[in-house]
Amino acid sequence: MASLVLHAVLVVGLVAMVGPFVWMLLSSVKPEGEIRLVPTTWWPHHPTLDNYRDLFARLNFPTYFLNSAIVAGLITLGNLMFCSAVGYALAKLRFPGRRALFGLVLGSVMVPGMVTFVPLFVLVANMGLTNTYAGLVLPFLAWALGAFLMRQFMLSIPDELIESARVDGAGELRIFLRIVLPLCRPALAALGILSFLTFWNSFLWPLVVATTEDKYTLPVALALFSVGQNQTKFGLLLAGSVVVVLPVLIVFLLLQRHFVRGIATTGLK
């Protein structure tokens, strides 16, 4: 009975959550005039694939897709490495400067991104990194939010586990790779999902760093169709949004399977 109620609530919630996404899917196969109808409609009356055809014809799609994949992929990998290492240090290792470092990390999570935008660009420009993958990727490899996330998760790993490995003579790197990281699978999955989502969708930074179209990412290229309320090509924008969202969903689907109890956790007393 209780489970039936739970299911019912979850299903109702699900409908409310997926509504706009379904509208986006359905409207991406409508002609422009039909999308702009007020009040809006759900089912397409004159379904057409023109929006998608137009999208692929007008955009140099493979290039933008590849750029997005390279940039978001490298940043996500970098985050997984650097943020988990520093998160481990901040949560489980005692060394001078630890508290100051955590303060800096936490502090910079809290600095509004807008305020550092121009100085960061000037810095990257002076390093000669505009219009390069390095300029798109390097500033975000050390993602403060990711470091904070990993630290919080690692706090809940029992100290005894690490201590006993150390007593058994395991090296520090080995402890990290063999004991800590496997315990962090759910956290790494969450970090991967959030990092990929954030940097796949990132717009303003790639827009200013890429000065020629061959370095544009998908969101930047898609924004070309958004030209104010009156002239925006909603059909192209929606079709593009559907295409942009797919990799994010695939990453989510692949990684959410790791939201399972770590084997070691249950075995420990």
Binding site: F82, A89, R94, A142, E172, F176
Partner: peptide, 10 residues
């Protein structure tokens, strides 16, 4: 050890 893990990020 501490800084070894923290340095690349830092």
């Amino acid at each position: 050890v501490g800084w070894g893990f923290a340095l690349p990020f830092t």
